[in-house]
Design a protein around this nucleic acid. Sequence first.
DNA 1: ATCCCGAGGG
DNA 2: CCCTCTGGAT
Length: 217
Amino acid sequence: MNADAVLRLLAETYPRARTALAHETPFQLLVATMLSAQSTDAGVNRVTAELFRRYPDARAFARLEPEELESHIRTLGLYRNKARHIIATARKLVEEYAGEVPRTREELERLPGVGPKTANVVLANAFGVPAIAVDTHVHRVANRLGLARASDPLRTEQQLMAVIPEALWAPAHHWLIWHGRQVCHARKPRCEGCPLEPHCRYARERASTREPMIGGS
DNA sequence: ATCCCGAGGG
DNA sequence: CCCTCTGGAT
């Protein structure tokens, strides 16, 4: 593997890759992240622009009826679960945290509809807590590049944090996800034109064996 | 037709 | 561990 090269390329391509969820407060980032499952940033940003204008904070969301929220987020998929969870979380925030978002992983994961991935995104992007959330894409890309080698997401996160300088953890998280979606697909990766191809173990195996051993997920 | 930046529930 | 929820992108 070639961690230095990967990190250098990461720094170069990151500004173009950044597809952050639009938000102005930790609560808004929490909601946007909960909406992002099985959806695109563009789609989420499109609905939250209107949503956050009308319902800017946890207190406003806590008063929402599910049907009302569903009508805003229907195009994002999984809308019933998302609406139910977001409202339940908003109500819990109002009742137990004075409408604010808690800052610990344990408290975040106790909110309805908030799991390890969502908690990590909020911790890293709203509260500056060092973390690299490992999802399907992060895991696959890291494996292919040789930055991490594990079937266990926790182990992968630790390996990534060991290889990547702390200042780059947040960018790396965004970049790995973006790259996994746009370029390094599970099935049909677009290795042609990928700036990492010369450093990528997967690309090498793919070129030589026609059936690479390093897979997705 | 197939896959998805996830969580809850059986 | 496996299933389900959903529309949208490819």
